[in-house]
């Protein structure tokens, strides 16, 4: 079992208004090979335990305990794990803090980015959407509020939001040379960072997936925004990946 995500097959590649766009497809075999890497990213064995302790800690606050259960892992989380594994393996990205993804709030406007890390000595921020919708482009790219376009736009242009992510990362990796290097580059010029938008799909491979973003997304600098579509086997690729990842969960 490989610890690196397979490269997949390049299906299309172009640049458009400073954005690098590419589509990569994966076979079922590729998926099986990917399962462990993705599982490593997705699972947090301490999650459940911590969550229960958090609920118990409320007795000191005067508020009543909250009644919720820890959910199972979801498709979009597996998609994010796959995307992160891909960027790490094939864009030389490093996302040093990606644990506990299973607890993240997918809809909160206050959350940061799906991925925060480094790329070529600079900060890298990434957003991932998983969709099996048979529309091109899928609505996850255009949806107001938390669509991929809105999220990437925020990453490209919202100084304050980005600065939060830089700090967020700092509290987790402070003191590393990699962080310092990226931070210096960023403080020299706050356009010195990379943005990745990743679509995880199990539909026909079409570059039209990016039509909305090509039309609407204004980037912060030439070649600093990469849009990557990862095409899993058609129809049930996402489900299959999910099942494969879950099978790894049992083993870990």
């Amino acid at each position: 079992m490989s610890e690196i995500l397979p490269a997949g097959k390049a299906n299309y590649q172009e640049t458009h208004n400073g954005m690098c766009i590419q589509g990569i497809s994966y076979s079922e075999e590729d998926l099986n090979q990917s399962a462990q890497v993705v599982a490593n990213i997705c699972f947090d064995t301490r999650g459940q335990e911590d969550f229960e302790n958090y609920i118990l800690s409320l007795s000191d606050t005067g508020f009543s305990p909250i009644k919720t259960i820890l959910p199972k892992i979801r498709d979009w989380q597996v998609g994010e794990g796959f995307a992160e594994a891909y960027l790490t393996a094939h864009f030389s990205c490093d996302f040093p803090w990606s644990n506990n993804r299973d607890l993240k709030n997918p809809n909160s406007s206050l959350t940061g980015a799906d991925m925060v890390g480094f790329h070529q000595g600079e900060f890298a921020f990434g957003e991932v959407k998983t969709s099996n919708e048979q529309r091109y482009p899928p609505q996850v790219t255009s949806k107001k509020g938390d669509g991929l376009n809105a999220q990437l736009k925020k990453l490209c242009h919202d100084h304050d939001g980005r600065w939060l992510l830089v700090q967020y990362l700092f509290h987790r990796v402070k003191g590393t040379i990699e962080y310092k290097k990226a931070c210096i580059a960023y403080l020299k010029n706050n356009h010195n960072f990379y943005v990745f938008g990743v679509l995880v799909r199990d539909v026909d491979i079409k570059i039209n997936d990016w039509d909305y973003l090509k039309k609407h997304l204004e980037v912060h600098g030439e070649t600093r925004v990469s849009l990557v579509a990862l095409y899993l086997p058609k129809n049930d690729g996402i489900q299959k990946l999910h099942a494969a990842v879950l099978s790894k969960e049992a083993k870990s």
Binding site: S57, T68, P71, K72
Partner: peptide
């Protein structure tokens, strides 16, 4: 609708 969202919201509240 989503357990995940409920979970994340719970954490925000806590």
């Amino acid at each position: 609708d989503s357990n995940n969202e409920s979970q994340a919201k719970s954490m925000r509240l806590m």
